[in-house]
Write a protein that binds this DNA or RNA. Structure first.
Lengths: 116, 116
DNA sequence: CTGTATCCTCGCTGATACTG
DNA sequence: CAGTATCAGCGAGGATACAG
């Protein structure tokens, strides 16, 4: 079977789950959907993220080959982040999740209130 | 635009992201893919989860209407967990993620090692 | 503008032991 | 068998201030 090994704690698919699950990566992918963005642009688009955490997220995604970081030697400094093809391909699973969420959120909320 | 509101910190789609992102929910869904399972069955199938955390996960998913908990008045006690239609429908986005992970894991690993 | 540098808290997660 | 109780650690995430 296909997903059998997922139950192995060392399965590498877990790495992807962890990344998708982290609080900001998905939002970064969505924010970069329509092309490159600058640091402050991302920061204001994505509500409530501090510069430290945004930097951490971007660096991690860069390490994983999901996006590129381009520095322009200008004053004031300019840095642009852009999804790689690999990062762009993440939209497929992400859309699957957000679509599901939008389709079924009312059911979840209803179930929660039923328990109240 | 469709995903605009996701950037709102209060957006409810985040709730789903958080649930998908947590360490065990996805594995529970996969473990229940082929029908109802008992507590200990889940515990042994999913490696490395303690009873406390498994209980927490199951209760949370029950509250959200993703699965049902059925107690049989027997000795010894028997409890079966089964996905609801809502929980079953989660397989679509989850498969999208695991498929993506399996397809692109090598690229991620390669990108990581390139940085080393 | 694009980050770093500190400090700190919160809660998720786990280990272990015990109960109906 | 199916959990609950209790304790503990750790690290992601955040607040704030500052630097190149």
């Amino acid at each position: 079977m296909k997903h059998e090994d997922v139950f192995n704690p060392d399965c590498q698919v877990r790495l992807v789950l962890d990344r998708i699950g982290d609080k900001w990566s998905v939002l970064v992918v969505l924010a970069l959907r329509d092309g490159p963005r600058r640091f402050t642009g991302l920061r204001t688009t994505i509500g409530g993220v501090t510069p430290k955490v945004l930097t951490q997220t971007l660096r991690a995604m860069e390490r994983d080959g999901l996006l590129t970081r381009r520095v322009f030697a200008e004053v004031p400094p300019r840095v642009e982040y852009e999804l790689t093809p690999l990062g762009l391909s993440l939209h497929a699973p992400i859309d699957a999740i957000t679509d599901w969420a939008e389709a079924h959120l009312d059911e979840i909320v209803a179930a929660r209130e039923a328990t109240t």
